[in-house]
């Protein structure tokens, strides 16, 4: 049964990479079911994240957000700060796709704080870029400028010419 779980996960990932997002979802849902049977929270977290990603490419952003929230909850339970940051970043981007910029800012700030705690300058730069864009969308030009300047500073430091 455990091997079946891993196989569903591998199939889900393969369908995803092939661009077959409906089949990816079906496989990852099976993977999730088996992970729940075993009480395997790390595997549940992976399945929720993979499901969220697949729903993004299906254009079902609300459903993606619900899955990323489950992944975030599990990341916190597992006390894995890096994957917690990743879930926050995914939620920030998903709420941007939903044009809910206030929520997007909330999650991008959570991502920024963890990136700073973990001394992840690339993550911090991405958070600032995202926050600058969300504030621009809301017409908060002073805040947008603040984050654009931080993004520029970090990009110079990390050698990101783009």
């Amino acid at each position: 049964r455990a091997a079946q779980g891993r196989t569903h996960g591998n199939l889900g990932n393969t369908y995803y990479l092939l661009g077959n997002f409906r089949r990816a979802v079906a496989s990852h849902e099976q993977r999730l079911l088996i992970a729940k049977e075993f009480g395997d929270r790390a595997a549940q977290r992976r399945a929720y994240c993979n499901l969220g990603n697949a729903f993004i490419f299906l254009g079902e952003f609300e459903v993606a957000a619900e899955h990323y929230k489950k992944a975030l909850q599990l990341a916190r339970q597992l006390k894995d700060r890096a994957v917690e940051a990743q879930a926050c970043y995914s939620l920030g981007n998903t709420y941007t796709l939903l044009h809910d910029y206030e929520r997007a800012i909330d999650y991008h700030l959570k991502h920024l704080i963890i990136a700073q705690d973990l001394n992840d300058r690339i993550g911090e730069g991405r958070a600032c870029w995202s926050l600058g864009n969300a504030h621009t969308a809301l017409g908060n030009h002073d805040q947008a400028m603040h984050f654009a300047e931080k993004h520029l500073e970090i990009s110079k430091e990390t050698g990101d010419r783009g």
Partner: peptide, 26 residues
């Protein structure tokens, strides 16, 4: 698909480009 074409935020576009090749491996 029309929703996908409406994406204009460059940081989100970049995230999606990366996401397309990202999987949580078993």
């Amino acid at each position: 698909k029309s929703r996908m074409h409406a994406i204009q935020v460059d940081s989100v576009q970049r995230w999606m480009e990366d996401l397309r090749h990202m999987t949580e491996v078993e």
